[in-house]
Simulated scan of single mutants.
Amino acid sequence: MVDKAQYANDEAEARGCLVLLRHGETEWSQSGQYTGRTDLPLVGQGRRQAVEAGLRLAREFPDGFDDGCVFSSPLDRAQQTAALAGFEHARTLESLAEWDYGRAEGRREEEVSRLLGRPWKLWEDGPEAIDRRLGGDREAPLPSGGAVLVRNSDGESLRQVSERAAAVVRRLQPLIEQGQRVLLVAHAHVLRILTTQWLGLEPSAAQLLRMNTAHYGVLGRYRGGNVLKRWNC
């Protein structure tokens, strides 16, 4: 006798997924400068990457994503990526904003270390370890020339970002369990941290998950548990 309930669960488990798409290239993603809340647009290469990502997603998910199940970070680079990938009606989800790097914003890791006079690592020390004297609004350079205004805050700790990400997981988990397909368009660090929360890992494990611009990962369910199905596609 066929267990209809189990069959329905298996069907939902096979179909349901959470797809995480990183935005395309910006000037600072090319140069390695921390880009949290500074609202940089995509460069030409980033726009092309977004279109190509949309084509890859269309091939892998020919039935698309469920109604009301496409979300984007509020930041322009993610919104642009969503639209160019074919998801111009993505719903804005504030919790998908990138990690607020505080006084590291617009700087590279080696620059922060030089200014502090000691080694500094984002994943180990966080923005909160940066001397307040390095804060305040300032102009940060663009590799193409000129500069952009950076409004520094104290930033977020890794734990604070993980709490935001965990709230997104709690909101979306029931949809995935029901067999729905959900797409999130956002940023490398917040998406990697969200992945650790889906998998029940410490948020620092996110540093082990590389995610290239305009690439995506797929989270899902298997035998009643949350799993990582594919990564950096």
Rank of each mutant, 00 (worst) to 15 (best):
E156C: 03
L84S: 13
E94C: 02
G224I: 09
G16E: 05
D10T: 11
G102K: 08
G54Q: 04
Q207R: 15
G145I: 14
E128W: 00
A83P: 07
T26K: 11
L122H: 14
G32N: 09
V218W: 00
L208D: 03
A140H: 10
L20H: 08
L199D: 07
L93V: 06
S113D: 09
I130Q: 06
A12T: 06
R170W: 00
E139D: 15
C17K: 01
D39T: 03
L40G: 12
L134P: 00
S72C: 11
L84T: 12
A90D: 07
D137L: 03
E139T: 15
C69T: 01
A140Y: 10
V2L: 14
V43Q: 10
Q33T: 06
R132K: 09
E11F: 13
G200L: 13
R118V: 12
E11C: 10
R103V: 09
A50H: 05
E105R: 11
E13M: 12
R108Q: 13
G16F: 05
V70K: 03
I130H: 06
A165C: 15
A50V: 13
N212W: 03
K121I: 03
V51K: 09
R210L: 08
A129P: 00
P141A: 09
A129M: 02
R132C: 04
S95I: 05
Q79Y: 00
R159V: 10
R132G: 08
R159N: 11
A166M: 05
G217D: 06
T35C: 15
L122D: 07
A205H: 07
T196A: 07
K229Y: 07
N232L: 00
Q45E: 13
G135F: 04
V218M: 02
S157L: 04
N232C: 02
L149C: 01
P203C: 06
S72I: 02
D154I: 04
A97K: 14
D125F: 03
Q180D: 12
V190T: 15
T195P: 01
D3R: 05
S31W: 00
G225E: 10
A147E: 11
R56N: 07
P141F: 01
G54K: 04
V218K: 06
V150M: 02
E52M: 05
V161C: 15
C233D: 14
P41C: 04
A83D: 04
T38H: 13
A83S: 15
T81R: 01
L175I: 03
L57K: 08
G217P: 07
Y34L: 12
F87W: 07
P41Q: 06
A205I: 01
Y34H: 13
R107L: 15
G136P: 00
L149H: 02
G200S: 11
V169R: 14
N9D: 08
A104S: 14
G106E: 13
S162L: 02
Q160M: 11
R22C: 12
L57A: 08
Q45V: 11
A90V: 09
W99H: 14
R103C: 07
R114T: 12
G155N: 05
W28K: 12
A85V: 06
I176P: 02
Y222D: 12
G200V: 13
E110T: 12
D76A: 14
D63V: 04
